[in-house]
Amino acid sequence: MDESKLLFTKSHEWIEPEGEARRCGISAHAQEMLGDIVFVELPEAGRKVSKGEEFIIVESPKAAADVYAPLSGEVVEVNEALEGDPALINKDPYGEGWLVKIKPDGTSGTDDLMDARAYKDSLEE
């Protein structure tokens, strides 16, 4: 996944900018702050989520972090590979370490999402 094309939230999630079902995950910065990820609690496919809702838990030995839905819509697919190998999020946060695919329902905007450059700048503030 080309990181420069993704949209980011202030709470360190990323989502693909377009498409019917969009992959989302957590940023390289977020996985680095958490350390070795050893457990992920993913939602069931079919679950409806509202933007900003806690819908995934990602845990390292030292901390548990909530992941917030970057857009409102339906979770149409989850990354089953993470169940056996959650460290994929550390190894490849924008590729094999994706979390779920969301089909946006069009009720939430993307204006507050940042492009890769703005997100990077926000980390340096």
């Binding site: 457990f39 609690e41 845990e59 390292s60």
Partner: peptide, 14 residues
């Protein structure tokens, strides 16, 4: 009394 607990899940206990 102190006991050891082993989870069925990968989830870290806290």
């Amino acid at each position: 009394r102190l006991v050891g607990l082993l989870s069925e899940s990968r989830r870290p206990l806290r």
